[in-house]
Simulated scan of single mutants.
Amino acid sequence: MPRMSAEERRESVVRAAMEEFGRGGYYGTSTEAIARRVGVSQPYLFRLFPGKRAIFLAAAERCVEDTIRMFEEATEGLEGEQAKHAMAEAYTAAITEQPSRLMMQMQMYLAVAAAEQEGDREFGEAVRAGWTRLWDAVHLPLGADVTGTTEFLAYGMLINSLVAMGFPREHRVWEGLEPVPVERGTGGPEA
């Protein structure tokens, strides 16, 4: 089996970090656990990244970028209500099929809040910058409608919370949150 390049190892570390940080949070995850998941030594891990903080921020960045890419793919050729429904469907499927994405998102918010309580605003700057890019990625397909963007992201956070708490899809708290299927090219929801 061919050896992985440093960039491939780095990618493996980011993916493993998303899993580990998603499960244990920033403060509850050791770099040893990440190294073990990837199959590298801690010293090698620190050749790829200068420290735990850099690994976490790379994982947070990847989480945001993956979500932005998913929204861009879902909304290709769509706008307004069609785009909103396509993003909602894509996001609901993604967090159901890849719970580590959801857990990493939730841990990002907690890590920033904890750092800021300690007076560390710098830690959150990168996460906020990513979230701002995510906001823009939602905002444009929704016709640059501030209210629509805010509502979409508010529903998304509610969905995050319900999934994170383990509410089954058939529970009554999900009523009103079901995405409407969109048939591409028809100009509206399926009949």
Rank of each mutant, 00 (worst) to 15 (best):
R3H: 04
A6Y: 07
A6K: 13
E7T: 06
E8T: 03
R10I: 05
R10H: 10
S12R: 10
V13P: 01
A17Q: 08
E19F: 07
F21Q: 06
F21K: 11
F21L: 06
G24C: 01
G25T: 00
G28I: 00
G28R: 00
G28F: 00
G28V: 00
T29P: 02
T29W: 03
T31E: 11
E32R: 13
E32G: 09
A33K: 08
V38P: 12
S41A: 12
L45M: 06
R47G: 08
L48T: 00
L48C: 01
F49H: 09
P50K: 12
G51V: 03
K52Q: 07
R53Y: 05
A54K: 10
I55H: 05
I55F: 03
L57E: 09
A58V: 07
R62I: 03
C63A: 12
V64R: 10
E65P: 08
I68M: 14
R69V: 12
R69C: 06
T75M: 10
T75H: 09
G77W: 02
L78G: 03
E79K: 15
G80I: 07
G80C: 06
E81C: 06
Q82A: 08
K84C: 11
A86R: 08
A88G: 13
A88M: 13
A88P: 09
E89T: 13
Y91E: 09
T92G: 15
A94P: 11
E97K: 15
S100D: 13
M104T: 08
Q105D: 12
M106W: 01
M106V: 07
M108L: 00
M108A: 03
M108N: 02
Y109T: 12
L110I: 02
A114R: 05
A115V: 03
A115P: 04
E116T: 00
E116K: 07
Q117S: 05
E118K: 09
E118F: 00
E118S: 06
E118W: 00
F123V: 07
R128K: 11
W131G: 13
T132D: 14
R133D: 04
L134C: 07
L140G: 15
L140S: 14
L140V: 15
L140M: 14
P141E: 08
G143H: 10
A144K: 15
T149F: 06
T149D: 04
